[in-house]
Simulated assay, not measured.
Amino acid sequence: MRQSLLTVGLVLGLLGAPAARGATGNDPDWPCVQRLVPVLSAGSIWSGPALPADGSWRQEPKVAALVSAIAPRAVPDAEGVRAIEGFAAPLDAEARRRLLPMAVSGTLAETNRTRSGLIESIRGFARRQRGLAETVRQLSEQLDAMDPEAKGEAAARREELQQRLFFATKTFQDAERTMRYMCEAPVRLEARFGAYARAFQAALPEAP
């Protein structure tokens, strides 16, 4: 019972305290230790030609096919880098200068689209966790208000509350472990885009 009470205390400690969960900035729905980067930019790692912002990459079938192959979340970094190298290898210098910035633009757009969905899922998950923590608080208060020596129907009611509190607390704990995994996903996509951008950069021909 002591361990159960300690666990409930930890859950209640998180209620209404996003900073204790790692939320940063002014977004109370961001529960992750990792810094929130809502939108990725190529500016910090891309020093090649300006990236087209008009979605023209979609009009180039080979570029669109490359982006479709490397942008899905499940694609490992190394596999995507190999696809980029294979795409660039047969292109002459002029084609590389024209097509590679398009491919970077498309990869960035698709990566941001996927990350945005993940970030919204994490925010929704955090809101549900706060609701579950509130449920734990209410059940705990109801349980505290009951006579621990009660008999008959009152004892049965107290046992029912204990069971509900146990399962609500366990559900919260299990979800916290899931959230820690979810919080890594946007960071992994950010790191993968960095690897892709470096591969595109390496494939660019030297300036004439």
Rank of each mutant, 00 (worst) to 15 (best):
M1G: 10
L5F: 10
L6G: 11
V8D: 15
V11A: 14
V11L: 06
L12Q: 15
L12R: 14
L14V: 10
L14T: 15
L15C: 08
G16P: 07
A17C: 03
P18E: 04
T24A: 12
G25F: 03
D27Y: 05
P28Y: 03
C32A: 00
V33D: 14
V33R: 11
Q34S: 09
R35S: 10
R35A: 13
V37M: 03
V39N: 07
L40G: 05
L40D: 01
S41K: 02
S44A: 14
W46P: 05
S47T: 11
P49Y: 12
P52H: 13
A53D: 15
D54L: 04
R58V: 06
Q59D: 14
Q59G: 09
E60W: 05
A64T: 08
A64H: 13
V67D: 15
I70A: 04
P72M: 02
P72L: 00
D77F: 00
A83W: 05
G86D: 10
G86M: 03
F87R: 12
A88M: 08
P90L: 00
L91F: 11
L91I: 14
A93W: 04
R96V: 09
R98C: 06
R98H: 10
L100R: 12
L100Q: 12
V104E: 14
L108T: 09
A109T: 14
R115D: 00
S116N: 11
S116D: 14
L118T: 12
I119M: 10
E120R: 12
E120D: 15
S121V: 06
S121A: 11
I122L: 04
I122D: 14
R123N: 09
G124T: 11
G124C: 03
R127P: 11
R128W: 07
R128A: 07
Q129N: 11
R130W: 08
R130P: 02
A133I: 04
E134K: 11
R137P: 08
R137L: 11
S140D: 15
E141L: 12
E141N: 10
L143G: 08
M146V: 05
G152I: 10
E153K: 13
A156L: 13
R157T: 13
E159H: 05
E160V: 05
R164E: 04
R164T: 06
L165P: 07
F166K: 11
F167H: 12
K170Q: 06
T171R: 13
Q173Y: 01
A185N: 00
V187F: 00
F193Y: 00
G194R: 04
A195P: 01
A195M: 04
Y196W: 02
A199R: 01
A199Q: 07
Q201R: 00
Q201P: 01
Q201E: 04
E206I: 06
P208E: 15
